[in-house]
Simulated scan of single mutants.
Amino acid sequence: MSIDQSDSDLFILKEPDAACLARQLVHGVGNHQMRKATVLLAFFRNGYWLRRFTDESGLNAVEPADDPTSVNWTRVRELLTDPDLLDDPRIEPGSMAPHLAILGIAASLAAGHPVDLRQAALQLPGTDWRRAMSVMASAADFM
């Protein structure tokens, strides 16, 4: 997996690698909403959450930990109840809101996590918000 290191030392997956990681993490998932939620995470900041979940085994957010094939959405919901557990020292303090918003939307799609869409819309840049809405609309086709 190739990693791009920006000037801020924030590691980001390059787009094709984020897509490859998403394919790996939906390989054994039959639930369409969970697949769509994983794809949403792949496109947000070039796979930020998928990379964190696979690299930080202490989060216990992928299954199985040694060769991940799916996101552990139950665990993601637990993590969202205490956002301090998801703090990232590589990101400027106070700038986790868009990251948490997209993770909340994905957890809502995959596992019914309650999410305040108004708050998410305020926290996400327009491009990320439109992409999230698109994924939610296509996931609704399979409800």
Rank of each mutant, 00 (worst) to 15 (best):
R75P: 06
R75H: 03
V76F: 05
R77A: 15
E78T: 14
E78G: 08
E78W: 03
L79N: 01
L80K: 03
P83R: 05
P83M: 02
D84I: 06
D84W: 00
L85Y: 02
L86Y: 06
L86N: 07
D87L: 09
D88G: 02
D88A: 01
P89K: 08
R90G: 03
R90T: 15
I91R: 10
I91N: 04
P93G: 00
G94V: 06
M96L: 14
A97F: 03
P98N: 07
L100A: 00
A101K: 01
I102R: 03
I102A: 02
L103G: 05
L103T: 02
A106R: 11
S108A: 15
S108R: 08
S108P: 03
L109A: 06
A110M: 06
A111H: 09
G112S: 03
H113W: 13
V115F: 06
D116H: 01
D116E: 06
L117N: 11
R118D: 15
R118M: 13
A120W: 05
A121L: 04
L122D: 15
L122C: 13
P125S: 06
G126F: 08
T127A: 11
T127I: 07
W129H: 10
W129E: 13
R130H: 12
R130I: 12
R131H: 12
A132F: 07
M133S: 12
A137Y: 04
A137L: 13
A140N: 14
D141W: 08
F142V: 10
